[in-house]
Design a protein around this nucleic acid. Sequence first.
DNA 1: CATCGACCCTGCGGGC
DNA 2: TGCCCGCAGGGTCGAT
Length: 288
Amino acid sequence: MPELPEVETVRRGLEPWVKGKKLKRIDLVHKGGNRSSTFAPLNAVEGAKILDLKRRGKFLWFQLNRDLALVAHLGMSGQFLVKSKKADDEKHLRVRIDCGDRKNEIRFIDQRTFGWVAIDELVEEDGEKIPRSFARIAPDIFDSKFDATRFKGKLTNKKSAIKRVLLDQTVMSGVGNIYADEALWLAKIHPERLANTLSEVEIKALLTAVKKVMSKALKQGGTSFDDLYINVNGESGYFAVELEAYGQEDEPCSRCGVLIRRIVFGNRSSHFCPNCQKNLKKSGAKRV
DNA sequence: CATCGACCCTGCGGGC
DNA sequence: TGCCCGCAGGGTCGAT
């Protein structure tokens, strides 16, 4: 569910509730589908001070005054909510975090259990300590560590649909199904174009589009279709009304009027304008 | 190695 | 009304 703009909205909302606070207590209320290797049980970080709440792409971590980090990913349906301690437990409540506030606590709620909260050890990266499991994740496009040259280099070696490559978090992180479709629409590139066939100009246009689409969404608090994605106060984002391609099947393209088409590949839907985003090669994707 | 489909899980809406 | 199918902002893993 959440991509970079949504995760960053959550991070910003959560930050004042955790930064500089003590991790008084952390409880695994109900185990979800936590498939990330947990380095230690969650309560191993009880008593630690939270120095910062950080993010790389869609991956979050609490930087602590310890040699361990508390790491988290929202998956498809994960939420961090600030709730009154008196409020009833949610049906899908997984983790409860008490940072010493008298009235409120932080809850990790996850209907589909693809998200997780875990402990990880730290490794050195460019003179900075980051969770070991995040080292393979590429910096996102807003990160000062993002390297456009490296990104281009990766694309020229990929004999794979550009949409797939955009979703590969080791190439560039933070982009998910919505913003991949939106960026490709904006850059006028067919989702199935093979990455290694993109020209220098097209790659540049794509990077510009990714950045533009995600910063615009971030300004509006992200994209909400329902209350599965909401910020820490339970409020929705407003970017959904501006979507040009994602979820717009059979709606006219705002540039040319041709109907947006949906195809399925890589187990996911892709939406694009068949007129603005032409593919040079024959596609094997099933038309839906 | 690089690439790709299957799979993890829960809930919702549409078609029959 | 109920059942079955497809679908959903995610990543990981094993087969090729």
